[in-house]
């Protein structure tokens, strides 16, 4: 580098530019956020909801703001001013918190509580709470985060590289044998985990998580007509159900819930957005 000062300066500048672009975040509207928090603490949940929804409309995405929005909806759900879908909206806000900060245990516990509450409400309404499992592929890929899959694939790549080096360059037969085994398993790991990373990325790029924020969301066909009861294996989507939006068309969204795929009205969903 000493002999190429221009190149060194260029590289340092590029790294600095990339780092600053990566870590740049929009400034938080501190005043509005603090006002919403105070309103929430004083029990003024309607004003707090209005404040947080306005911030969401402006594109602000922050796990703590989503958490406080969930708290506001839960307060309203527990009050005489409760609106249909409040628990679903609280679940959506908590899902958003967890999406932005997956290790938020308080949000996770609160989400479990909201889901239990919805299940109890369904039971009181003599509606059966349905528990669905995601598709096997999504469940496997969803077991770990996208970055973890990538890390595992990188580990596989490293092992495969070491194995190849040993296999091809070592003079001792034991080392060469060990290198061959290492290269085989490292290559398999690289392929599998690389595929999982690519699938997770594809899912993130081409689908969007959403939560049902209506007491029940009716399945529709592609033309928007309600599907008759019993037409599918599942009944109507319950409040708080986490779905994946595959595509949207006008006022309808094609969603995947467990093994079922059909259309629902967009107004009955809240899509969880990442910046």
């Amino acid at each position: 580098m000493r002999s190429h000062p221009r190149l060194a300066g260029l590289l340092l500048g590029l790294v600095g530019l990339l780092t600053s672009a990566w870590s740049r975040a929009a400034p938080l509207p501190v005043e509005e956020l603090e006002r919403g928090r105070q309103q929430l603490e004083q029990g003024q949940f309607e004003q707090a909801i209005a404040e947080y929804e306005r911030l969401a409309d402006r594109g602000l995405v922050h796990p703590d703001v989503s958490f406080n929005r969930a708290a506001a909806y839960l307060q309203r759900a527990s009050s005489p001013q409760a609106q249909p879908g409040d628990l679903g909206r609280a679940a959506a806000a908590l899902e958003e918190t967890l999406l932005l900060r997956p290790n938020d245990t308080e949000a996770g516990a609160a989400l479990d509580g909201v889901r239990r509450q919805i299940a109890r409400r369904l039971a009181r309404s003599e509606l059966e709470a349905q528990f669905v499992r995601p598709r096997l592929g999504r469940a496997l890929v969803g077991a770990l985060s996208e970055n973890t899959w990538l890390l595992l694939a990188a580990l596989g790549s490293l092992l495969a590289t070491l194995g190849l080096v040993l296999w091809r360059w070592s003079r001792r037969s034991t080392h060469r044998f060990a290198g061959g085994v290492l290269a085989l398993f490292g290559g398999l790991a690289l392929g599998l985990f690389g595929l999982a990373t690519a699938f997770a990325r594809h899912q993130r790029e081409h689908t969007q998580p959403a939560v049902v924020v209506a007491p029940q969301a009716q399945w529709l066909d592609a033309a928007g007509a309600p599907l008759p009861e019993g037409a599918g294996a599942l009944g109507a989507l319950p409040e708080g159900a986490a779905v994946l939006v595959l595509e949207t068309q006008g006022s309808r969204a094609k969603v995947e819930w467990g093994d079922a795929t059909a259309w629902v009205a967009l107004t009955q969903l809240r899509r969880i957005g990442l910046p």
Binding site: S23, R37, D64, F67, A77, S78
Partner: peptide, 15 residues
């Protein structure tokens, strides 16, 4: 079901 509102922890860059 009652959550205590959080004080904001400052800007958080996206994952």
């Amino acid at each position: 079901l009652r959550l205590s509102p959080r004080a904001l922890l400052g800007p958080e860059s996206p994952p």
